[in-house]
Design a binder for these strands. Structure first.
Lengths: 204, 204
DNA sequence: TAGATTGTTAATCGATTAACAATC
DNA sequence: TAGATTGTTAATCGATTAACAATC
């Protein structure tokens, strides 16, 4: 049986990767757990512990090769490949996400877009056609899309999510401010600025 | 000395509030830790423990008054008042955030907008003027703004954040994919879809 | 070699869960 | 009253940190 990796550790790996990619862009070749930790506001011990869950990637006395650690993390996170995304809800936020260059450059390609507004259906966003949300399950399955981003009103989110799952979607990035009830095998991450703002106002 | 509340508990309170507001909208008057937990995918025991940090808000055998718990949580989170926000970076995402109705309805009002693009400076977004980012510290202080949202390229984020802090900003919602180095008294929350997507692809 | 930094173990710290008396 | 559910304590579980031998 595969060793169980704590989800909280998995959640830190993308931030390690992000920081390493910045360091590489800035021309650095190697780093240490101490330096990476200082960059991210995380203890050096925690970084070493997290990484050691997957193997020994560093050298005593020398630290880590940035390129090599980037490659390892990409492989661990399964982002050393490209992923197809579906985008549901082509309002202001959906439009902003569709235009964001960061997805493509990281291997996430929006290949399907859906809305329920007849005015929008048939139109284009970038070079893909906006389709009727009624076709979600069918199209998602046909295109073998496993990841979706949901930017619809919260009243619609649960039903749309169910359709996505019917089509075979396994991971949903949910921008709607509501908790989704889905089968356990589906991974959901929430992005809600209000939740984050209210977290901070506690301290003000 | 005030009892110390774990940050992880504080982070869950906005989600409790969100769920309670939905329940209220759906016409419910009372709920229980069991029901709220089922809604959020959190154990009933954890919800009771979290709430009990702040006082006894429920009645044995009866559960919680939704209205009363909403009021309590709003008070605890300091969102029973309105907050002024500064928005820095008026690209696609900045525009989408400026148009989002959810901020205003939750008491978060964008009162300042900044960019560095001369084409944008002097223009309007909604009914506020886009100002030169060079004036951030000055304007933020003059308007007594304590919270900012940062939607600038990651190369600019650190410098802009420093200007915001100079102006007296205490909380930053950072959409730029980079870790900010700021004094300890400044609260920073990160919103990066790539980080969330990469978290999920680990499991795919 | 001497210095630096890893990988790992053990100790500490903190968070979650289980259980139940209190009580509405 | 009988049933339900809270608030809280103690037990369990998990995560972080400190420390250091190994070694580049």
């Amino acid at each position: 049986m595969t060793k169980q990796i704590p989800d909280i550790v998995v959640g830190r790996l993308p931030r390690y990767l992000q920081a390493l990619e910045h360091m590489q862009k800035d021309g650095f070749m190697t780093t240490s757990s101490k330096e990476l930790g200082a960059n991210l506001g995380i203890s050096a011990a925690q970084i070493r512990k997290d990484l050691s869950q997957f193997g020994g990637f560093g050298k005593q006395g020398m630290g880590y090769s940035i390129q090599s650690l980037i490659n390892q993390l990409r492989s661990i996170l399964h982002v050393n490949q490209s992923w197809k995304l579906a985008l549901v809800g082509i309002g202001d936020l959906g439009n902003a996400l569709a235009r964001y260059q960061g997805f493509t450059s990281r291997g996430f390609h929006i290949v399907l877009a859906f809305d329920i507004d007849p005015e929008k259906i048939g139109g284009k966003i970038g070079n893909i056609e906006i389709m009727d949300a009624a076709k979600i399950a069918e199209e998602v399955r046909k295109n073998d899309v496993k990841i979706a981003m949901l930017t619809v009103p919260s009243t619609a989110a649960q039903n749309i999510a169910v359709e996505l799952v019917k089509g075979g979607v396994l991971a949903i990035l949910n921008y709607a401010p509501i908790s989704l009830s889905l089968p356990d095998h589906v991974h959901v991450e929430y992005v809600d600025p209000i939740v984050k703002l209210q977290h901070m106002t506690f301290y003000l």
